[in-house]
């Protein structure tokens, strides 16, 4: 578990992105000390509530997973670039369509 944690921490691209994790690590250690797995479970849920309540420039932090927005090419799996026809719902753009249905028209001439 320690090895997995160490390797996973290298997945964070920027050093400053890891600051909040350093603080949260102590909070979860404290919760684990008080109530073990139970405390960690409660901490995870409260932390999740805080994250889902956050907004970044007007866009919810956990979008498109919570709240679920239009999942065409914005969900768990991404389509190829030439198939991404709609812009993300959470951006509230003026034009929803990013490109035509057949974007590579030269292929069919």
């Amino acid at each position: 578990m320690v090895a997995i944690t160490a390797v996973a921490s290298f997945a964070i691209p920027d050093f400053s992105f890891g600051f909040h994790l350093r603080l949260m690590r102590f909070i979860f250690i404290f919760l684990g000390y008080i109530a073990g797995f139970f405390g960690i479970g409660l901490g995870i849920f409260v932390y999740l509530c805080i994250l889902t309540n956050l907004k970044s420039f007007g866009v919810p932090y956990m979008v498109p997973y919570a709240p679920v927005t239009n999942i065409n090419s914005n969900g768990y799996f991404l389509e190829p670039v030439w198939r991404r026809e709609k812009r993300a719902d959470y951006l509230n753009t003026k034009k929803e369509k990013a490109q035509n249905h057949i974007s590579m028209k030269w292929r069919y001439k």
């Binding site: 008080i34 109530a35 509530c49 889902t52 309540n53 997973y65 709240p67 679920v68």
Partner: peptide, 25 residues
């Protein structure tokens, strides 16, 4: 008491947050 503490904190954070966290999990 620990359960209720977590419940009160999440209720103070907001209804939307609870619903979305529930959806997530």
């Amino acid at each position: 008491i620990l359960f209720l503490l977590a419940v009160v904190i999440t209720n103070k954070i907001g209804f939307q947050a609870i619903i979305r966290s529930n959806l997530f999990m």
